[in-house]
Design a protein around this nucleic acid. Structure first.
Lengths: 165, 165
DNA sequence: AGAATACGTCAGCATTGTTGACATTCCAAG
DNA sequence: CTTGGAATGTCAACAATGCTGACGTATTCT
């Protein structure tokens, strides 16, 4: 069943996979470390960061959209969203097309906090890109994209291509 | 308005960074999705998975070692470790060199659960590697490695090179 | 002998996720 | 116009996993 003779290495790959798994684990820690430091000083957590990020990315998005992007329950999101609205970081407008919807946008203060968080995270990403080289960056994104669930990949591509439609 | 003259694109890079950030977010969800499904059926969570993984990776490791690898407090780890020991997945031996230490190893049952989780995670990683190609894999690991904090990078390299020392 | 280390544990708290249930508002179809 | 369903908000309860702080015990080092 596993007799690869002299050509393709079948279980060497397992080492590669193992390494990839551990790389994801350790790298994700680095990925979130800088924003977390900033958030810890304020009253916010990682969930607030994510909400700010995706509202910034798709201004005027609805709660339902955000829910699907983030992949959490509405109760979980609402807790976070409520504090952001109360604190004046996110603005809440009744939908024009459908008045049941709430269109979410960042206020100036929201943009400012998002920028602080985003700058920290981008700085690390920029350094990693620079250290690894542009060929590596391409492969990096290819593998990550292939690792996503199909629904998430759609979200991802929509954001990447659409920019801010 | 994305036509930056003809030479070096200065803020085009920001799009790349933004994409990388979102790729990390969505991909990490995929990365944890399969083991999470298995864990949800049992009485365990992601923290148990991590403990099992790294004990399996470094049999005979100490609590302190594991603590540094995982980057959590001993109280947090202990809660997880205790249930794993009680449930007979992890074995706990008094250190020989230093009797204060507890040397952690997986039992047969522990190996079995780790394998189930690991198989699921590796299957996704394997598919992603296959879809992206081996050049991409190389870049993937380069960028992730560059993204880690220095301490984590040391841990990562020690595990990658050492195999099971 | 005394300091330091490794580990375990109790207690309490915060964040962030989950279900389940219910109310409101509004669009759209009959 | 009524009615069903969609989008949202909210209350309550609970679970997983982090954290800090404080002790206690065993062991080793100085």
């Amino acid at each position: 069943m596993d007799k690869p003779a002299a050509s393709a290495p079948p279980f060497l790959a397992d080492d590669q996979l193992q390494q990839g798994i551990e790389a994801m684990f350790f790298a994700y820690r680095g990925f979130t470390a800088d924003p977390d430091k900033i958030l810890a000083q304020k009253e916010y957590g990682r969930a607030h960061h994510r909400a700010l990020h995706f509202i910034h990315r798709s201004p005027g998005t609805t709660v339902n959209n955000l829910l699907m992007t983030l992949g959490v329950t509405k109760q979980s999101l609402n807790r976070v969203l409520r504090t952001l609205i109360e604190d004046g970081l996110v603005h809440n407008a009744v939908g024009t097309r459908d008045r049941r919807e709430r269109l979410l946008t960042l206020t100036e203060a929201g943009v400012a906090l998002d920028k602080a968080l985003s700058d920290a995270q981008r700085a690390r990403m920029r350094a990693a890109y620079a250290a690894a080289g542009s060929d590596a960056v391409d492969g990096f994104r290819k593998v990550l994209e292939a690792m996503m669930d199909p629904d998430m990949r759609k979200q991802y591509k929509r954001l990447s291509e659409g920019g801010t439609p």
